[in-house]
Amino acid sequence: MNTIPYFPGCSLKDTATGFESSAQFVMETLGLRLQELERWNCCGTVTSLTTDDLMHHLASVRNLVRVQDLHESELVALCSMCYNTLARTAQRINADPVERDKINQFMDRESSYEGTVEVRHLLQVLRDRIGWETLAQATPITLEGLKVACYYGCTLLRPKEAAIDNTEKPTIMSEAMAAAGATSVPFPFAGECCGTYQVVDRRDLSIERSFRVIQSALRAGANVIATACPLCQHNLQEAQKELGHVQGLADIEIVYFTELLAAAMGMDPQRLPEGLNVLIQQTAEAQTGWGGS
């Protein structure tokens, strides 16, 4: 089976294990195995934005070196924060030989980074390498009737250089959902911020932002929100817990987009979120009830 170097990130080994296992299942089914880097470190989670602060790019560059050591030039990430941080660092350091040289001198025990590794998000790999046709053919279980709000958040769309699709009107996740037979419902907060790391010292702020995202999805008629970010998922679920009394807020499922794809590909339901299984079953029953009576 073909393989592609894969960077998991901390969350996928801890709070978001379902994201990883579902993605692995999806990619195995499609014949392109995610090959986890043998040695990797935290991506840094956020990009350092000052001109002179190269130190905070080290973590990302070390991961790129691991890919280079495999004689590969492509690295795929699932977590959108990892994707963004790795991709932005790769773009900056690949394009700037002076900064690259400085970093190489500092990391004197590593192989010298040549600036040749590019970082992709799994959605890009699905679109550009696998193709929606192939994906559709690999989904025997249809998710017809499921109304998915594809929530991109910030890091898949911004900045433009790291965006995996149009920054204001992305369709890449909806296309993946469509391939699995689900209906993607457009909602205005698809690219809005969930409050991100503010949850650490300004929880009020992240709860409020996440609440608005969920409400926007609810009003658009969604019954499940698909995300690619463990922090978005955490914040949205915190808002659900905190504001569960708000009509409908706690009912909407918040899952990783790969979990929906894996369900459509027949992954063992026991390895998928319980709420998602129930939702899929109810939707299927409603569908047959509609068509069969």
């Binding site: 470190n41 935290c42 840094g44 130190m55 905070h56 080290l58 070390r62 990391m107 025990r109």
Partner: peptide, 19 residues
């Protein structure tokens, strides 16, 4: 941790501290 690896370089026991 910023993965600077300074800990590993400082270790007299040759441990991969950063890892």
């Amino acid at each position: 941790c910023v993965s600077c690896n300074t800990c590993t370089k400082a270790c007299p026991q040759d441990i991969e501290v950063m890892d």
